[in-house]
């Protein structure tokens, strides 16, 4: 198994990818928006109608998430992650967790964490990719509000979640 890259090397790589995204497509990178698009497309195909919450993701009658920029981008993220992990010998079926909890507890915590992030990213209109990185580098005020609020809350609550990780 290969060692991880230097964090600054990985960071500069991601920064150049983000810059290329501004230059080529006039927008940054994202992740949570793709989840929102997929959820909206699923809701619309089940109910046969859009709602005020899902309509912005289904403009121009586009019902296929595969025509959505962020969904295609996130497919790329998944393939890129897969290829890198595979070539580095890091592919394995596993539940990664702190030393003090079992796999079931870890899966439950991961799922609950996902729910909070889904709600939070929807409310904030983006996540660590679409707000913190993309908007942060473009000096968006709301993105910096998100960065400060996200990490302040994480550090503030960390002592309560210590059993999960340490």
């Amino acid at each position: 198994m290969k060692r991880y890259s230097d964090p600054y090397f990985a960071g500069i790589g991601i920064g150049l990818v983000l810059l290329a995204s501004y230059v080529v497509v006039g927008r940054g990178i994202g992740a949570s928006g793709a989840f929102a698009s997929i959820a909206a497309a699923v809701s619309a195909s089940v109910s046969g109608a859009t709602s005020p919450a899902t309509a912005p993701y289904l403009q121009d009658g586009v019902r296929s998430p595969l025509k959505d920029w962020l969904v295609l981008e996130l497919v790329g993220v998944t393939l890129g992650g897969f290829t890198s992990a595979w070539l580095a010998g890091r592919m394995r079926i596993d539940v990664e967790r702190g030393p003090g909890i079992g796999s079931r507890q870890r899966i439950a915590a991961a799922f609950s964490g996902g729910i909070f992030m889904g709600l939070g990213a929807k409310l904030a209109r983006g996540c660590t990719s679409g707000q913190a990185l993309t908007g942060g580098a473009l000096l968006s005020v709301g993105s910096w509000v998100f960065i400060v609020s996200c990490f302040a809350t994480g550090y503030l609550l960390a002592p309560l979640a210590r059993r999960l990780w340490r």
Partner: peptide, 28 residues
């Protein structure tokens, strides 16, 4: 440029931070 909505982004960021801590991973 992502549009700014101060309070929703402050509250959304807090919910997101709590979820990040619980889940240990972010969406990407």
């Amino acid at each position: 440029i992502p549009e700014t909505f101060v309070l929703p982004q402050a509250v959304g960021g807090a919910l997101f931070g709590a979820g990040f801590l619980l889940g240990g991973l972010c969406p990407g």
